[in-house]
Design a protein around this nucleic acid. Structure first.
Lengths: 155, 155
DNA sequence: AGGTCTGGGTTGGTTTTTCCAACTTATCCC
DNA sequence: GGGATAAGTTGGAAAAACCAACCCAGACCT
């Protein structure tokens, strides 16, 4: 568990989220899971993550409610295990999409995008935007962060 | 630099973004900067980050184009340095907001939210949503990730 | 029955990061 | 000259990540 901030630790949403997904490799495992990958060997081979670290990450993601461990059996093979996103895990698509979108805009690859976010119904490209109660998009530069009810710090 | 994935490293937006902001503490420094903090002692005291690590992180964020180091001088003090978000740094608000939103929904604090995202014009609360070309919001569960033009891996 | 393959891991030892406490440096005010 | 303060440095201990080699259970092959 990576973060123990002093003053406001248990209250801050960002810290609490990073407690679950902030360790090295965790978000990449989740990204690959969002692409449909479910197996130890897929994660290990595609990410190049050391297998002992992968074992540890899968365990913390399972205990954090992001992944679910299931057993499966292919014809002609013994029982093995696979890892599937829970609803909470799938909801991390917003975090992955935010990282992708920032990378596309401010740190683009000369080769173009490695993955795209699309509408499942019609494959139209999507992007993330800040929206208000009226569902109208608000430009990112006009977004402000304010202390919420649980804030104990004045800033 | 935390990530060196084997097959598709330089292409993937998520990896490229995490190269810049994926080290421990980086995103929390950025969150505090989005709240308007600019000084070494503010980051150190509010986050509880060891000062040597803070020195290192500020340097990588500056060299990554997220923060800008400025000198300032308060009346009755010598010249000191402060750190200000660049445009690219401010654009990371989408990443911070995504982490906040997930935490609020799937790992909420009993005390409520520590910070809120609002419209700078009228302080109306905002949220992040996936939107298509028509600007209509698409439910998160219907969002799909597809290989893009730079993908070398079949998945 | 013995040997080999395969997926999903362990194990032991090295390297890299992080952490912590103590110290430093430059300037201002008294 | 002495104390305060912001922004760091330094040295050594602890934790995390890395790597290569190994293990293990069932399936399949001869």
């Amino acid at each position: 568990m990576p973060f123990k901030s002093l003053v406001e630790e248990p209250r801050c949403q960002v810290v609490r989220t990073l407690d679950v997904v902030g360790e090295k490799w965790s978000l990449l495992i989740i990204r690959n899971a969002l692409r449909g990958q479910t197996r130890f060997s897929q994660f290990r081979d595609q990410l190049g993550i050391p297998s002992d670290i992968l074992t540890a990450r899968l365990a913390t993601l399972v205990s954090g409610g992001i992944l679910e461990k299931r057993s499966y059996r292919e014809a002609g093979s013994r029982e093995r295990f696979s890892y599937h996103l829970t609803e909470a895990g799938r909801a991390l698509n917003i975090v992955i999409a935010a990282l992708m979108q920032w990378g596309d805009e401010y740190n683009p690859s000369p080769y173009g995008q490695a993955s795209l976010v699309v509408d499942g119904d019609n494959d139209d490209p999507l992007e993330l935007a800040f929206v208000g109660a009226t569902r109208a998009a608000v430009p990112s530069a006009e977004v402000k962060f304010l202390p919420g009810p649980a804030s104990v710090v004045t800033w």
